[in-house]
């Protein structure tokens, strides 16, 4: 069992605090580019979705990596990027189906859950991004969905 970021789009306001938190705490500068989490925004519909690394069980990003720089840690469940091995060939970017790998000056960065205390979750005021167990993910999603149905039901 590992941990992962759990996203509730219903709570996301599109404020992008998570992006600045990630870049500030991890890259040392407040930037909307140098962040591992990225908020996809649909402003017309007021819908926002923070895209995060799913810490896949079979990480597709690791498949084409010629230097084995991306590895799934069986202990922590994290898909880890080993910086010393990475040469910046960018093939992981073409392989990740979630677009969760960001390029900074030609080199990839990816979410490692900040050693268990993700900066993005701390700064997310509405609680749209939280840290949870991947095995509890199904339950969490069920609760989120049930909550929405309940709201709609009560509003009738």
């Amino acid at each position: 069992m590992g941990q992962m970021l759990i996203v509730d789009p219903a709570r996301c306001t599109g404020c992008r605090s998570c992006e600045t938190a990630c870049s500030t705490f991890r890259e040392g500068e407040s930037s909307l580019y140098k962040c591992r989490v990225k908020v996809v925004r649909f402003p017309e519909e007021l819908f926002f979705y923070p895209v995060v690394c799913q810490q896949c069980e079979t990480p597709l990003c690791a498949v084409p990596c010629p230097t084995n720089a991306l590895q799934k840690d069986s202990q922590t469940g994290l898909v880890e990027l080993i910086k010393d091995r990475c040469v910046g060939c960018k093939m992981c970017v073409t392989a990740c189906p979630f677009g969760a790998i960001t390029l900074v000056d030609g080199h990839p960065i990816k979410c490692d859950l900040c050693a268990g205390e993700p900066a993005c979750t701390r700064l997310c005021e509405p609680g749209a991004i939280t840290l949870g167990d991947d095995e509890g993910m199904g339950l969490t999603q069920r609760l989120l969905l049930a909550g929405k149905v309940r709201e709609a039901y009560l509003a009738k």
């Binding site: 189906p97 979630f98 390029l103």
Partner: peptide, 10 residues
């Protein structure tokens, strides 16, 4: 900007 390459290729 190339970050969407993976999404598109899938």
């Amino acid at each position: 900007e190339v970050e969407a390459a993976g999404i598109l290729s899938h």
